[in-house]
Simulated assay, not measured.
Amino acid sequence: MFHTETYGGTREEQYTLVIAQLKALIEGEPSRIANLANASALLGQFLRDINWVGFYLLEGEQLVLGPFQGLPACVRIPLGRGVCGTAAQKRETLVVEDVERFPGHIACDSASRSEIVVPLVKDGELLGVLDIDSPNLARFDETDRVMLERFVTELAARL
């Protein structure tokens, strides 16, 4: 059974606890969809000042909406388009301080002002991306990037 934790300590320590919770939640569960759903719910309860968190999964040459927390979202994103499609195509994490300044940004939720997208890669194969939006400008920083990359690495290893 899952218990909500009070996240004390440094942000790195808080993220470390969340990663431990992720491992416990998905240990032994073979369903990719169930694991992604629990991962998005876990991040949704942990992260503050966000309005959307979830996954887009690679199907052919586009990303297709997967498990998420937040308002209804764009269903399909071509590789190379918007923040998600660009991060997927480049296979690198993108931290965008102001989405309105990102060329080709796809506005699924008009309240979103900043975004982080982390590619989900297993054994060199792109599976999709983790996408997190915030209504605050410059919400995400280097700590978020490093720790969310660790989170996604742990998740991908079990998918």
Score class of each variant (00 low, 15 high):
Tyr15Ala: 04
Leu137Met: 07
Glu115Cys: 02
Leu148Met: 12
Leu36Pro: 04
Ala138Thr: 04
Phe46Tyr: 15
Ala34Glu: 14
Val121Glu: 14
Leu36Lys: 08
Pro78Met: 00
Leu155Ser: 09
Ser31Thr: 07
Glu115Trp: 14
Gly124Leu: 10
Val95Ala: 04
Gly70His: 08
Gly128Val: 01
Val64Asn: 09
Val129Cys: 06
Phe55Ile: 02
Gly54Arg: 00
Gln45Cys: 03
His105Val: 11
Gln21Gly: 05
Gly70Met: 09
Glu100Met: 07
Gly44Lys: 01
Asp49Cys: 01
Asp131Glu: 03
Val64Cys: 12
Gly44Ser: 09
Ile33Phe: 10
Ala39Pro: 08
Arg48Thr: 12
Glu115Val: 04
Glu92His: 07
Asp141Tyr: 03
Ala138Phe: 05
Ala111Ser: 15
Ser110Leu: 07
Met147Asp: 04
Leu79Lys: 13
Arg101Asp: 13
Leu22Trp: 07
Arg11Tyr: 00
Ile132Gly: 00
Asp109Met: 02
Gly28Lys: 05
Ala39Gln: 10
Gly8Lys: 08
Arg91Phe: 00
Ile106Thr: 06
Lys90Gly: 03
Lys90Arg: 15
Val83Tyr: 15
Gln14Glu: 03
Tyr15Glu: 09
Val53Tyr: 11
Val146Gln: 15
Glu142Leu: 11
Ser134Asn: 02
Ala156Trp: 13
Val75Phe: 07
Ala88Thr: 05
Asp144Thr: 09
Ile50Arg: 00
Gly104Thr: 07
Trp52Gln: 03
Leu126Val: 06
Ile132Asp: 00
Met147Ser: 11
Phe140Lys: 05
Leu36Thr: 01
Leu94Lys: 04
Val64Ala: 12
Pro135Glu: 10
Val121Phe: 12
Leu25His: 15
Ile77Asn: 09
Val146Thr: 15
Pro72Val: 05
Ala87Lys: 09
Ile77Gly: 01
Val99Ile: 14
Val75Gln: 14
Phe2Asn: 13
Arg48Ser: 08
Leu25Asn: 12
Arg32Ala: 05
Pro30Glu: 12
Phe140Arg: 05
Gly60Glu: 02
Leu43Arg: 11
Trp52Lys: 00
Ala88Val: 06
Phe140Asn: 04
